[in-house]
Simulated scan of single mutants.
Amino acid sequence: MSRKMVVFFMLLALIVAVNGQTFHFGSCPTPPVQQNFDVGKYLGRWYEIARLPAVFEKGKCNQATYSLLKEGVVKVVNAELLKNGEINSIEGQATVTNSTQPAKLDVTFFKGIADAPYWVISTDYTSYSVVYSCRNVFGLLYVDFAWILARSRTLPDSTVSQLRGDLESHGVSLRGMTLSDQTGCDAMPEGQGQ
């Protein structure tokens, strides 16, 4: 089999594997991250307001809780409410890999699987956060994720529009971004994910 055919089948397999993901030809954009990021102020609960497609998110009421494990290492607990009423959660770790850029973390949920970037693009720590993650694949395309998070289950539409515009101004395509469902979340205990 020729090298071109191998690459074609690898790309085809990748497209099938990332069904529902946002992928593009080229290389990951590199938006600037939050200056003087303070992970201590970032800890606590964040609710998902909007996101690019993520095959690993299947429910609603998505939320993330961050707590400090040790200097430069954050415990991450993501939780969501599934259609059958069950709460699905997963625990991982986010690590600051370069102390001069603390807003660029690497997150992992499974041993043996490569860390994923978790870049805090902007946050005011008290109401909103914009997070971006991107991985180059075979030097030909990239798969990316973006989230708009809030400290409450709602965020004004004008704020969401502004945050979307900020991401797009740095070359991030948000064509597939959807608003997250944060209604009917009573089954999500306030302590869930801590």
Rank of each mutant, 00 (worst) to 15 (best):
P189K: 15
I121Y: 05
S158D: 13
C185L: 11
Q182W: 09
Y132G: 00
S158N: 09
H170F: 14
L68V: 07
F9K: 02
A114C: 03
L140F: 13
I15M: 07
L12Q: 07
W147M: 01
N19Q: 10
F110T: 08
L14K: 11
D106R: 12
V6T: 04
P156N: 05
G191N: 14
I87Y: 14
L81E: 07
Q192T: 15
E86C: 07
L174A: 12
V107E: 04
A114Q: 12
L68M: 15
Q63Y: 01
E190D: 14
Q35L: 06
C61P: 04
R3W: 00
A54C: 00
A150I: 01
S152M: 01
R51D: 03
V120M: 04
S67A: 14
N84A: 12
E71C: 02
V18H: 05
G40H: 13
M5S: 05
V107N: 05
D144R: 06
V74S: 10
F37Y: 08
K83L: 10
N136H: 01
G44P: 02
S173E: 07
C185A: 11
S158Y: 00
V160P: 01
G193L: 13
K83S: 14
S127A: 03
D166N: 02
Q162G: 00
K75T: 09
M188W: 07
T22L: 04
E190R: 13
T65E: 00
E48L: 15
G44F: 08
G92P: 05
S158W: 00
R153Q: 13
R3D: 04
G171H: 06
L14I: 12
F138A: 15
S152A: 11
I148L: 06
R45D: 04
W46N: 01
G72P: 05
